[in-house]
Design a binder for these strands. Structure first.
Lengths: 348, 348
DNA sequence: TCCGCCATTGTAAACGTTTCAAATGTTCAT
DNA sequence: ATGAACATTTGAAACGTTTACAATGGCGGA
């Protein structure tokens, strides 16, 4: 096994200097075609492969970006990564991927590692974008970054998101319009997700506004916090789905939770939307395929990933003002939300 | 803005040589505690961050691995990446992620880029693992790699997979046991996926074996090839679901296809499993939550990702024999497969 | 007192690039 | 014939590490 060929090897083979080889690689236009060919032949003959690490060491930019998501297990993040990867590929960027499992410690650790790799910038979905050490770190190190799905209160950071509160508001309102009066939200733990809290706020707001219209029409909003990745909601939802206080509608902070909630309803013999209506937020692809078709506040997840990379590129290229984009969501025409079960007809 | 601190800066601040700084980073035990502390203080004071690119340039190993999947949009791959990422994190490895969209050209391109990054090894899910230029390339460059989900015919490459043919065989047999006689497989295009073909083989085998038992009991196996990422199967499945030749069961080569197929059945007013039974392969999480619960040949996707990384580490550490592991799949107790609709009662 | 040993630290040469400044050769107007 | 202007190429110095080897100094034993 001969040692790996380097520019030096190629240069020797082609009878030129390593500077010329470099130019053939980076700006072949500035080199006479005849020389270019000779060098290219040598490269092919030796199976030369440029070493990105050498290049990165020398150059100011590494042409790599770091990506941090809570988990790949939720299709909404996987899809956004798909969008990022796609856009990165088009620009010839390398993607370094990490996940945090919603753990702030791991977030910090992961970002630190990415910075050690000297990525040109980062795309992050943080558990909690406010009061987050990761953001402080990135700002103090002056590294471009874009938040994805986070909707931070501070305006000096770039972010791409839908309006979380509004998403929840709209889907809640859709339920209220169908006659639902007793609603609960199923949401991930607030400390693990700012989106979860923002969506809960929207949920409450919708109920309050309905009460404003028609005083005390609505029962007080209820909340069921669950762990992320939790798919067995049966026990957790019992007090919400059974007994005299049972709700007629569940607004879920994510589609994954909504699908799990529908499954839980079924174990209690409740039909969706016959007995209980269920709405989600995110718009994951599978939601449109299941029965009943999930009614959700849909966000253009993959596009958002692409857009995030586009923003990041802007920042890397020196654009100084971080932009924030609040994309419109769209209520899908789903079947999982139906007319409220008549109040006086008890379950069974 | 002061320039980024390097080991040299730290060394100066701490009043030691850069070799000592390096030692503090890599083997603090060989340095007296007092010195270690002084250097650590300097690092903290200067906010020093080791530059991985410098290190990688010098060292034989880069402590990074490349990952190539067809797409993140299919949860089965996203979940495996989740497993890989998790295991990589535990070993302090950096993950470089790429996707191919099932395109062999992009596969080659992506792997080439990863090699330019001098990854220590690769984990790949290829469209077609036999007769694949990527594999030839990797072998000729002598780079450790592990195939994930691919089940190559050659035995000199490491791979982690379930038995694709057997998975399809089992799920098909489950349908036959329920009285189904007219079956079709819904599968991704063979040229885009060797798994797709292997699963089709298993499907046919199950039907042949049934005919062996009880001559000509089964109708000839039918095949419906669809594009990957295709979720609207309505038109495509028409000739299989309607008319006198309508099948009573659909074996799908992936769970995503199965979910889409169930959705398509619904648009034809067919109930699952009342009118048509549908089975999948993969075992994505959401399959267990939907109605009807998807009956699938489940593989331990995330574990497989972790296992793939473990294998890869072995190869990187110099283990010469590439191992292949064929994990057992498990038929999930789903509701999407039911007794066959009686032959003589035509649909509507 | 001198020597050798050990623990600790330092020097300098890689690793594979990019890039600036300088060198070489060619062409052309004078 | 001379030198200016230009096209092409080269030499050498980085970039931030690691690491083999050398240097330094303190110490105990002879």
């Amino acid at each position: 096994m001969t040692p790996k060929p380097t520019m030096r090897t190629v240069a020797a083979k082609a009878g030129v200097s390593i500077a010329t080889v470099s130019r053939v690689i980076n700006c072949p236009d500035e080199v006479p075609t005849e020389t270019v060919e000779r060098v290219r032949e040598a490269m092919a003959y030796l199976k030369y492969r440029p070493n990105m690490n050498g290049r990165r060491l020398k150059m100011a930019q590494t042409r790599s970006v770091g990506v941090l998501v809570p988990t790949m297990a939720n299709p909404v993040f996987a899809t956004s990564v798909q969008g990022i990867e796609q856009a990165a590929h088009e620009d010839g960027l390398t993607v370094l991927l990490t996940s945090s499992e919603y753990d702030p410690e791991r977030e910090l650790d992961a970002v630190s590692t990415l910075l050690n790799n000297r990525v040109d910038g980062l795309i992050l979905t943080l558990a909690n974008a406010d009061d987050n050490r990761v953001i402080d770190l990135l700002i103090s190190e002056n590294i471009p970054f874009v938040l994805l799905f986070n909707q931070p209160s501070r305006t000096d950071v770039a972010s791409i998101s839908v309006d979380n509160a509004k998403s929840a508001y709209d889907i809640t309102q859709a339920m209220i319009a169908k006659g639902h009066r007793k609603l609960a939200m199923v949401a991930g733990h607030f400390e693990s997700s700012d989106r979860s809290r923002q969506r809960y706020d929207g949920f409450c707001q919708a109920i309050n506004d309905a009460n404003q219209q028609d005083a005390a029409a609505m029962a007080a909003p209820r909340l069921c916090q669950v762990g992320f990745g939790e798919t067995d909601l049966e026990g957790i939802l019992e007090s919400f789905l059974t007994g005299p206080d049972a709700v007629t509608g569940l607004v879920c902070s994510t589609d994954m939770l909504a699908i799990a909630a529908i499954s839980a309803c079924r174990t209690y013999g409740l039909s969706v939307p016959g007995d209980v209506s269920v709405g989600g937020i995110d718009g994951i692809a599978v939601g449109g395929l299941i029965t009943p078709k999930l009614c959700s506040a849909v966000q253009p997840t993959q596009k958002m990933g692409q857009q995030a990379l586009a923003f990041l590129l802007g920042l890397i290229r020196g654009q100084t003002e971080p932009q924030s984009l609040l994309l419109p969501h769209q209520l899908s025409t789903g079947e999982s939300i139906g007319p409220a079960r008549h109040q006086s007809s008890p379950r069974l």
